[in-house]
Amino acid sequence: MKKVYSRPKSLKKATFHYCPGCGHSIVHRLLCEVFDELKIQDRVIGIPPPGCSVFAYNYLDVDMAESAHGRGAAVATGIKRACPEALPFTYQGDGDIAAIGTAETIHAANRGEKITSIFINNAVYGMTGGQMAPTTLLEQTTTTSPYGRDAALEGYPIKLSEMLALVKGAAYIERVAVNSPANIKKAKKAIKKAFQTQIDDLGYSLVEILSPCPTNWKMSPIESWKWVDEVMSKEYPLGVIKDITGEKDAD
C-alpha cells in the first residue's frame, strides 16, 4: 500500500504544547503543507506573536523573528523592505492583531505592504487564561466577563477583517475556520492564495481563521468545533471579504 498522508516536510518532529483539540496545531500543519507545495520553505520568514503560539518556531522549520506584542506587521514590513525576495508572514492571535496591534496592522495594510498575516481568532485571550478579547462575542462568558459580554459596558465584537477590507492597500482578505474537514481544506486554499498574493507582489493579504479553544471555552474538543459552526461563524461569517488579485497584473 502507498502512503497517502504523512507529516509535511517543513513541520518539525516535535510534540505541540497546545491543548488537545486546539486549532493552532492544525493551522501550523496547513502552513507547512502550503510551504511544501509552493516550495517556499527557504524564503519564508515567520513572525510569531506573544500568546499561545509564541513557540511556533519550535514547530515550523522556517526562519522566525519574534516581535513585540502586536508589532508583527511592523517587523514584517522591515524584513520585506530589507530583503524583498523574502516572504515574511505574521502569525497573530486576536489579542495581538485586533487589540494591541490594530494600528500597526491597519497602517501596514494601508501602505500595501507585500506581507501576509495569519489571524487566529478564538474570541478569548488564550494564553493568559481566557480573558475577554475585543473579538469576544456578545453574552459570551469569559474570566473577565463572568456575566457575559455586555455591549453597553464592553462594546461589540470587532470585525478586523471587514475593517481592513476598506483599506486600499489590502489585496486579499478571507475568513475561514478550522472546525471540519471541508473547512480545513478551504482554510488551506485560503492560506495558499494569501502566500501566492505575496509572491505575485499584489499587496497585503490576510487570512482570518476561526479557531477552537476548548480549554478556555470550557468545552470538549468536539463541542468547541461545533460551537464555531453554530455560534461563532454567525457573528463572523466565513468567506472571501476582499479579493482584488484578479484585477491586478501579476507583474
Binding site: V4, Y5, R7, S25, I26
Partner: peptide, 20 residues
C-alpha cells in the same frame, strides 16, 4: 477506505494514511 479524513482533522499530526 484510506480517505484520510482522520489525518486532515488530526491536530497533532500523528496519523499516517496508507491506501491501495
Amino acid at each position: 477506505t484510506g480517505c484520510a479524513t482522520c489525518a486532515l482533522v488530526c491536530a497533532e499530526v500523528v496519523i499516517e494514511v496508507y491506501r491501495d
